[in-house]
Design a protein around this nucleic acid. Structure first.
Lengths: 220, 220
DNA sequence: CGCATTTTAATGTACGATCATTCATTCATA
DNA sequence: TATGAATGAATGATCGTACATTAAAATGCG
């Protein structure tokens, strides 16, 4: 009767599911609902329907709606952070390799999906007046910003071309955010590949000996 | 003998106020309310209280809440558009002068205020799932984007340094949007002056013979 | 220039819809 | 049987909208 959703795995009985799995399922449903309905029109009934469960269960796992939303933002922030830190650790030791890895990480198909970008955008819009959201977005960005600044400082020192690494790092971070926003707000957005090329075009403008529009130049 | 002409102040007890004035007053109150309460928590009662009038009057001037919000976005979009087009017309004929004027216009203290940036941010967050909002933001951006692309194309041709003007224009537009977002979402944002310097640092990276971090270089 | 009438801005109460939250109950699993 | 996940109806609060009403300005008329 209600097996239309197909969200839950058909093999497991939907009756009993582990607490952690249900919570993650509800968070994913929240991201999806915010993306399609918008933040202000997201109701717990919508989230529950998206997850294929009754709406009363949302309050069973998350005590309030506010808690569900906060944990969803925490989930997104942790996912984002984990993505670029993993990319950074997997990269080589040179600052150019690390910058390439960090910038590229933002376009990972696991996190650069339309529902996730939409949800980020919605939380940003509400963050201005909610200290909780602002702190979650801010502390996350702080770490990212510091890392980017450190990499840019080493790159500037290597190249000896001058330039303020703080400001360069800011432009690079902002450019990535901007192409994300474009993919959300434009009626006919360009592709994720073109978005990444735009970011690297910006990196190439500051470090022309290390980057071009496709990313890190081969060592020579 | 009574003070007929003495009641020039309309703010004392403005029983009767022109339709246009009240509408603009309500729109300004809406911007303020969205900035302080957030989009999802903005109620008509809040807007009316902000404007100092009864909440029933909101429906008298704007038939629905949705219409009030839409007209507020239109108001912001028209104001933004008028600002950069006026700056462009006042600028000199050379593409470098025009780029300087257009980029500088975004930091005009009339539109670069915290309530307005917050309201823009809130509408962006909701635009993803509302065609009306997306069209209003989009059509506005389209014109701005095309103008910026045209200016950049002439600059690239003048300098003969190569580079894709579309992508350069995109980075410049995105950088401006990005520093705006920073001033909203960061817990300790930098100043508007530093924001403008960041934008011009980006312009200088692409056109080093024409710009530095403070804007257009003097002709020599 | 006064007085009556119409028009319209403005108020506040009331209604109906929506939605988050609670809870008694059901059901699967150990 | 005991435990806790899951349901869905009931509740209470919030909020947008409609409307009856009031009062001020505009207009018509003598």
């Amino acid at each position: 009767m209600d097996d239309t959703g197909g969200i839950a795995k058909p093999d497991a009985t939907p009756r009993k599911q582990s607490r952690a799995a249900r919570r993650q399922q509800l968070i994913e449903a929240t991201i999806e609902t915010i993306a399609t309905q918008g933040f202000s029109r997201t109701t717990l009934t919508d989230v529950a329907r998206q997850a294929g469960i009754s709406h009363g269960l949302v309050n069973f796992h998350f005590e309030t709606k506010e808690r569900l939303l906060t944990e969803t933002l925490q989930y997104l922030a942790a996912e984002y952070r984990q993505n670029w830190t993993a990319a950074l650790e997997a990269a080589g030791p040179s600052p150019a390799e690390q910058l390439d890895a960090v910038l590229r990480a933002d376009f990972d198909p696991r996190i650069c999906t339309k529902p996730r970008l939409s949800a980020w955008c919605a939380f940003w819009g509400e963050a201005q007046c909610r200290p909780m959201y602002q702190a979650l977005c801010g502390s996350n960005d702080d770490d990212y910003t510091r890392t980017l600044e450190s990499i840019c400082a080493r790159l500037v020192a290597e190249d000896g071309q001058g330039g303020d690494p703080v400001r360069i790092a800011r432009v690079l971070r902002i450019t990535t955010e901007g192409v994300w926003l474009d993919m959300m707000t434009m009626t006919e957005p360009y592709s994720a590949a073109e978005a990444m090329r735009t970011t690297f075009t910006c990196a190439a403008a500051f470090f022309p000996r290390r980057f071009d529009e496709n990313g890190l130049l081969c060592r020579e």
